[in-house]
Amino acid sequence: MEALSPWVAIAGGLLIGTAAGLLLLLSGRIAGVSGMAARAVGMARDGAPRRQAVGFILGLPLGAALIALLVRAHEVAVTSSLPLLIAGGLLVGFGTRLGNGCTSGHGVCGIARLSPRSFAATGVFMASAALTVFIIRHALGG
């Protein structure tokens, strides 16, 4: 995997932050993907209006497709085995609902508004993710 230019990474981050900022100023809401996804499929009792959540979730792959058309083809490597994909998905789905947020809701929106809960959640998921990778790749010799 080639290194990505920091400027491209920063441009991508600015787009993500602009999306989060726009949703706040237009609709008064947090751009959290896990909450929006739950809302879109009718699992959350409160949150964004359902149609807005559906639009947001549909927009994610559309935006990614736009980059493939206009900027560069995607080269993505998913190397996890089938059991890891299932276990990882279940943990991400359950954990983000239990903890009320993921990388976007806590990591980007929460930290930007200096929420103590989001600082704590981001610290915990970064640490547990890094520990998991360390165990798989180095302790178990993955």
Partner: peptide
Amino acid sequence: PGLVVGVIFGAGLALSDMFNP
């Protein structure tokens, strides 16, 4: 508005290669 925000968000994730595990 949801769609527009989602498109910008998804474009940012793809541009920065953050959907590459």
